[in-house]
Write a protein that binds this DNA or RNA. Structure first.
Lengths: 338, 338
DNA sequence: TTGTATGCGTTATCAT
DNA sequence: ATGATAACGCATACAA
């Protein structure tokens, strides 16, 4: 609880000199600096970040607004990987992270801007915002530097990181087409997600390029959950038994699809090929091991933090970055059988 | 950027009255309160948490010192589950979380106490501290309220949450003994972890109770990693082919052990039974699905945060809690075969 | 019911 | 090279 005032009294120097000495200013003699540093040490002094932040208008904190850090998302380390990336990046600089622990009830009380301004964060990283989220508009209107994850919007104070979702989806579906599939369905997430739109675009593009006409009945939404995907896939496969392949917008949904197939007595991959998206660690262990699109979420988080810290340093720092995904072929896809 | 001063000028009331009105004090007339609130609204005022914290000596932030939020731990959502639990708990109260992003290099620069005092956190949750960690002593010496995860120490300002590691380990080994195993080895984590000691105790206790003499050669350390466990298990199984069961202190190490067995041509579970610890989501998908001890890490985090917030509220709030684990029997254990 | 004055711990401006 | 003083935005003891 010692302050620079205490050091000042102990050493006889003014608080100004103490402050300057401790902050490495050059206009203080080495002898007094030594004295002051020793006093600080003996009083086990720590600077008060609040007071410093109050006057400096900079807190060296990055805000994190992360959806999905809750019980039901526990199996999805997607969010965790992003977090690790951000954390590692912040650890290499002087920033700490503040996690806005907000639930839907609290979200109604405090807006995005309020949250950030109260905590006086230097910048924010947003993960999991939907396109119709009211927060999104606030972000754009606000003057708080911000990086969005998987929402491609940039403006003066806003940047983003994402992956090439469309191209990746296209690659995934091309893989199915190359194997000889024609009746390819898609289990998407939900319409309010940018990534869902992009991935659908990729699916559609691949089909068009192959001269296969799109059938809207073949495309359903699984809300990114295993359960809904399983249910949707069950109905899909019952209604359209001609389907021989399903492209899913997440690995967990792919798991749901495989379970649906299993219950209907449809063998994967021999009667039905399944492709996922994400490449979660568990995907390797699925039965059969899942063919999927690998996203490097760690790197996504890492780049997000770097981008943001860059924006804080200089006006004309790059504001967005798009990473490349990669198709990982395992055993859930094969030539269409009979 | 509006302050109460701005509101004061706009409405003509003093900043005192503005402050009191906004903070819901009763000694301000409803009419002026209304005026002031409207002014605040129109100026889109947000209180400055730094200034408030400076004078109130309370920041409504909980510090999180978490080891393992880094690239190599990405597959281990153990940490993430704890985090989710803490987050959910904090979300239901007025606290936000601050993640101390510290790497080993930075850790040498700033001590635990410095970190906390600079940020002026009201309390701290520590995860992943080893028994020989210098941080630990600091925690005990400091007067910052703190909850340790899986380190059973409590004092005036320190509490902890943990699970019944010893009993759980004993249950796991009992299960093996009940199946008819005698030559049971253990792949532990590392000696500096409390949980390792506890789990070893449980192993030893079970063996003693069954009248099986302990052989120190049967106990090795896998450092909680898949790779080291695999390597250690390989040597173990080569040197002592009479071993028919291995109890592992984590699921990832159990995976390493199963891989070792696989490479040596030893069938699990028919020639070797394997038990893990944690019940990570992937454990269900291992081949064979892993028998293990389920730990509810989410609840652990939840309780940790609740405990800490309780300690902040009153002196004589309970300071520790021990949760129960549960044996989950899957297919990696069986009667010893030949 | 409202206002005045003070302090929280720090940095910054301007003297000396 | 060092010091006095004013800010930063807020809460609170005390007055009125």
């Amino acid at each position: 609880m010692a302050t620079i005032k205490d050091i000042s009294q102990m050493t006889g120097f003014s608080i100004t000199t103490v402050s300057r000495a401790l902050n490495g200013y050059s206009d203080v003699s080495e002898s007094t600096r030594k004295l002051i540093k020793e006093a600080a040490e003996s009083l086990s002094y720590s600077p008060n970040g609040l007071a410093r932040g109050l006057v400096m208008k900079e807190t060296k904190t990055l805000g994190l607004l992360v959806s999905g850090m809750t019980y039901k998302n526990i199996d999805n380390n997607f969010v965790f990987e992003v977090l690790c990336g951000i954390n590692d990046s912040a650890a290499n600089s002087a920033y700490d992270l503040i996690l806005f622990s907000t639930n839907t009830a609290k979200q109604k009380m405090k807006t995005y801007t309020q949250l950030c301004r109260e905590r006086k964060v230097d910048g924010v990283i947003l993960q999991g915002v939907k396109t119709d989220d009211p927060y999104l508009q606030e972000v754009l209107d606000s003057d708080i530097p911000c990086v969005l994850i998987d929402v491609p919007i940039d403006s003066k104070y806003v940047g983003f990181v994402s992956t090439n979702h469309k191209q990746s989806a296209q690659t995934a579906v091309d893989h199915l087409i190359d194997l000889g599939h024609h009746n390819i369905a898609m289990v998407n997430g939900y319409p309010e997600a940018f990534v869902s739109k992009e991935r659908y675009e990729g699916y559609a593009e691949a089909m068009r390029n192959a001269g296969i006409s799109l059938r809207s009945e073949y495309v359903v939404n699984g809300n990114f959950t295993e359960e809904e995907a399983q249910q949707q896939a069950t109905e899909l496969l019952k209604a359209y038994p001609e389907i021989t392949a399903i492209f899913c917008a997440s690995d967990m949904m792919a798991l749901g699809v495989m379970k649906a197939a299993g219950e209907l007595g449809i063998a994967v991959p021999h009667q039905l090929s399944v492709v996922g998206f994400d490449d979660i660690p568990t995907a390797t262990y699925f039965q059969p091991p899942l063919t999927t699109i690998r996203q490097n979420m760690y790197q996504l988080g890492h780049e997000a933090a770097n981008l943001l810290m860059g924006m804080l340093k200089s006006e004309d720092s790059p504001k967005y970055k798009i990473l490349e995904n990669e198709l990982v072929i395992r055993s859930s896809t094969a030539e269409p059988g009979r």
